[in-house]
Amino acid sequence: MIDIILLTLLVVVAIAIIRMKDLFAVVMLLGIYGLLSASFFVAMDAVDVAFTEAAVGAGISTLLMLVVIAMTGRKEKTNRHKPLPALCIVLITGGLLIYGTFDMPHFGAADAPIHQHVAPRYINDSMAEVGVPNIVTSVLASYRAFDTFGEVVVIFTAGIGVLTLLSVARRKEDAEKISSINDSMHEQHLVIRIVAKMLIPFIFLFALYVQFHGDFGPGGGFQAGVIFAAAIILYAMLFGLNTARKVINQTFIQLIAAVGVLLYGSVGIVSLMNDGNFFNYNVLASDPIAGQHLGILLIEWGVGCTVASVMMIIFFSFAGRLELHQHNERVKNQESS
C-alpha cells in the first residue's frame, strides 16, 4: 500500500517537473523526487540504497544545481520547437518496456529467477564466508569489490573532470579581495552560525559512526564520505569560502582523493603479493574471516576518503566559480554606475 502511495507521489512530482518553467522550483522538486524515491527504497527494504539516495539525490545534487542556477539564471525559455518527435521516441521506448513487462516475474514474487540463482548464496553463506551481518556490505565490499572499486574511480574521474573544467587560476591578492567582500556578507548570519557550530561536530561524529557501523547496519564508506563532506560544505557556506579554504587546503584534498583510490587498490595488490587473487581478502590475515574484516575495513576507508574529498572538490570548484561570477558582476555594476 505504502509503495503505491509513494509511486503516485513520484508520478505527480515528475509531471510537475515537466510543466514547471521556474528552474528553482524544478530543482526543489528534483530534491523532493530524490527524497521520495529514498522513502520508496526503504519500503522496498533497500535501506543502504535509501541512505545513499537521500544523501545524493536530495542533498548533494540539489545543492550543486542551486549553485549553478545562481550563475545561470532561473527562468527556462518557454518557446520551444514541437515536442512531438520527443513524444514519439518516448512512446516507442515506453511501449517496448511495457511489452517487456508481460513476461516478467510478478512484483514481490519469491520464486522469481533472481531470488533463486546467485543471491541465495549471499544470504545463506555470507556470514560464514565474510562474517559481516549486513549482506549488502559483504556483497559490495567482498564479492563484488571490483565494482565498488570502479565506482570509486568513477567518482575520482568526476572530481578530476570538474577540476579541469572549473578550476580558476588567479592571483592571490585577487582571491583575497573577492573573498573578503563575500565574507563580509556572511557576518550577518549570527543564529545559524552558532547553531552550525554546535551541529558540525555531531555531523562528523555521525559520519564516523556510519563509516564504522556499515558492517552491522546500513551505511559504509560512501554515505560516510558524503556526510563528512556535507559538514565541511555547511561550514563553507556559513563562514565563507575563503575561511573554509584556509581550514581545508585544496591541494591537500586532491591528494586525499588520490590516496583513497590508491588505498583501495593497494589492498588488492597486497593480496596479489600474498598469492591470492586481486581483492582476495582471505590471504590478508592468517584467519580468512579476520582477513575479510581487515580488507573490508581498509577499502571502506578508501571509499570514504575519496568520496568525501571529491565532494568537497566539486563543491569548492562550483562555489569558486560562483564567487568569481558575483565579483565580475559587481565590478560591472560599479563601472556602469
Binding site: 548570519h189 543564529v191 545559524i192 547553531v195 554546535m198 551541529l199 555531531f202
Partner: peptide, 16 residues
C-alpha cells in the same frame, strides 16, 4: 534534540 535545534533555525533562516 536535533529537530528542536534545527527546526526553528531553518524557519529563522527562511524568514530572514
Amino acid at each position: 534534540l536535533l529537530t528542536l535545534l534545527i527546526g526553528p533555525t531553518t524557519s529563522h533562516v527562511l524568514a530572514k
